[in-house]
Amino acid sequence: MAKSPQAKNAPAKRRTSDIPFGHDPASRLLPWVVAVMVYIAGLSIAGALVLSAFADRWESGLIGAMTVQIPPPADDAIDTDYQDGLVRKAVAAILETPGVEKAEPLATEEMRRLLEPWLGKSIDPRDLPLPSLISVEFKDGLTAGDLDLRDLQRRVDAVAPGAILDDHGQWQARLVSFLESLRLVAAVLVAIVTLAGLIMVIFAVRGGLLAHRQTIELLHLVGAVDGYIAAQFQREAMKAGFKGGLLGLTATAATVVGLGHGAASTGAVLPGVAVLDPTDWVILCLLPVATALISVAAARVTVLRALAKMV
């Protein structure tokens, strides 16, 4: 079918911006600046997520458990049988306490393994005036707060005076406080990077407004409303934000995976590759969307405020 002259003259379907952003150095550089910002923010967020996962793992290992220490005799006279007797009585007393699932004394072998780094292999812990440790586990879903610890203390004291109940609360409180500080630092870092990114977008948009002042004036004069002009800057900011976000995310992912591999090679002490769970990755993957939205909002506000000053 022959095309009408109008159809023949019409340009091929493509979305051409009325403003030539491609000629503007600030617009060209913006995705790279955003990428750096997203990289820093991404690492901060990943760090905070790793710490949270780490803390959760420690905590889940400790929740629902406690340790009872039976001190050695005060005169330092080592009487293994006496001490073992105290431990057995204490275990029996602990097991009678409601909510307790299991109570097991720490085996001599395990004790040796714990002390080995400091005292060497040749030392027998039974020759030392060390407290005996009883590992206590609670019934499913219970924590130390659910148990009557006073009753437990009383029961244990009755058979082994001076016994110490350690529900790891103090250690946990310190750990939580430390992790909260680290999370706060990460949040502040993300906020600073977001602010810096916002400022960069605002400067780039202002640069674009100056660079394309004549085009903008022409658009105004042919009857464009402010929203029409702002929409063109928004589209450009969205593209730059999303592109920069993707670049930054790629770099972040590569770094996290690389560090994970490095950490995994150190052994079990540090979290490994799989330390970020799928939910964490989803959070990181939202970064390009977030940067695109923030860029759009910043561009819109900046352009509308600038245009409001024009005739």
Partner: peptide, 20 residues
């Protein structure tokens, strides 16, 4: 004239209609 260099003749002429 104030024609926009990055647009074609068609797009330049169409500009007032487009903004409307």
């Amino acid at each position: 004239f104030r024609l926009l260099d990055h647009l074609t003749t068609f797009e330049n002429v169409a500009l007032p209609l487009k903004v409307k």
